[in-house]
Computed example of a mutant assay.
Amino acid sequence: MRTTDLSELAAFDAVARHRSFRRAGEERGVTASAVSHAVSNLEARVGIRLLNRTTRSVSLTDAGAMLLARVSPAFGDIGLAMDGLNQFRDTPFGKVRINAPSSIAPFVLGPFLGAVIKANPRLELEIVTTDRLVDIVEEGFDAGIRLGESLRDGMTAVKINPRLRFAVVGAPAYFTRRPIPRIPADLQGHVCLQNLYPSGVRYPWEFTKDGRTVEFQPTGPVSSDDHDLLLRAALDGVGLAYVWEDRAEAHVRDGRLIRCLDSWCAPEDWLYLYYPTRKYISAGLRAVIEAMRA
């Protein structure tokens, strides 16, 4: 088979897995139109429509589903074989795609980026941040970062630094009207901003001390899944915010925010860098793991 045929099959495989020309193009490092052109060439060559396309969706025809079932495992084996070559290479190089939560990415990845790139000048890191749960295999990532509680089966997980904590903060102007809370129960008398998951579900503020865990569900006038917005509202005196302590640290240090209930804010569960168990570890990914390992 010609190289062009393999390229067209690879483009079809990517579109079929992602159900998206755009995401297939991102995975392959080309434009969506280039992927579409490759798939159209393949369909013209075999004389059968493989994909149904509309302006909003992509789906497989019966013929396309049969082809995907045969070629996808083959491309998986090719990928494993190429990954396996990295064990013979001493110097990490190439691209490593990492997915990380937007809310913590600057504090988790920021401190190590400069050092790992300086130590591995042929390495390229592509970091995509989002707080939604991502299937790293389906979306073409080499690894992801999550709290241990949200890891899925079939993944190898490596504990990484740092271990983060939440902080409850409010502006000095806010505390001219209300006393600083000393225990979680005191929050009942305060305006507390609400935290959302990307799905829109509200999650409680959680506190732990002396083996006792307490949850408090805010009912304040502002709710968001963006910690920067919640922090901005707290700085403006709207109410108390529950955010990652690293995000609030500079404002606490310069006196623009006051931290409360510090002794009740225990470290969160460990963060993990995770990747598919069945995949060989490339030299590049191994360099990232060693740089971040706790």
Rank of each mutant, 00 (worst) to 15 (best):
V137T: 03
N120W: 10
G84P: 02
L164V: 08
S150T: 15
T156S: 12
I98Y: 00
L113V: 13
R97A: 14
R163D: 09
S103A: 09
R146V: 06
R152S: 15
I127H: 08
A173V: 13
E139N: 07
G76S: 05
P172A: 06
Q87L: 07
F175V: 01
S72A: 11
G154S: 04
T129N: 04
A173I: 09
T130G: 15
L109N: 03
S103I: 05
M82N: 01
T129S: 04
V168K: 02
T91W: 08
T91M: 07
A74V: 07
R70I: 08
T91N: 09
E139D: 12
V128K: 13
G110N: 12
I117V: 13
E139H: 12
G148F: 14
T129K: 02
V169E: 02
T129P: 01
T129W: 02
I104W: 06
R132L: 10
T176D: 01
F166E: 06
R165N: 13
T176M: 02
A74Q: 02
F93Q: 14
G84E: 04
K159T: 13
L67R: 09
P111K: 10
F93P: 00
S102P: 06
D153I: 07
R177P: 00
F107E: 03
V134E: 12
G154D: 06
R152M: 15
A105R: 03
I117Y: 09
M155T: 11
D90Y: 07
P111S: 11
Y174V: 02
L68V: 05
L123P: 03
E124I: 14
F141I: 10
T91F: 03
V169R: 01
N161R: 13
V134T: 14
I136C: 00
L123R: 06
V116E: 11
L68P: 00
V168Q: 11
I78S: 00
F112W: 14
A115F: 07
M82A: 10
G76W: 01
N99K: 06
I160A: 09
V71Q: 03
F166S: 13
L164R: 05
E149I: 14
L123V: 06
P101A: 12
P111N: 07
L68R: 06
A143R: 01
G110P: 15
S150V: 15
L67P: 06
A100E: 00
I160P: 07
L164Y: 08
V169Y: 01
V137L: 10
G170R: 05
I160M: 04
E138W: 04
R146L: 12
L68Y: 04
N99D: 13
E138P: 00
I104L: 15
A171P: 01
V168W: 03
P92L: 05
A65R: 15
P73A: 01
F75G: 03
G114Y: 05
V108G: 07
I98E: 00
L151P: 08
T130A: 15
P111E: 10
V128Y: 15
L85M: 11
V71C: 00
Q87C: 08
R122N: 11
I98M: 00
D142T: 04
L113I: 14
A65D: 14
A69P: 03
G79P: 01
N86Y: 07
P73E: 03
L125D: 01
L67T: 09
T156V: 15
R132G: 11
V137N: 01
G144D: 12
K159W: 04
L164F: 05
A115C: 05
R97C: 08
F141H: 14
D153C: 02
G110I: 14
A143I: 02
V137C: 04
P73L: 04
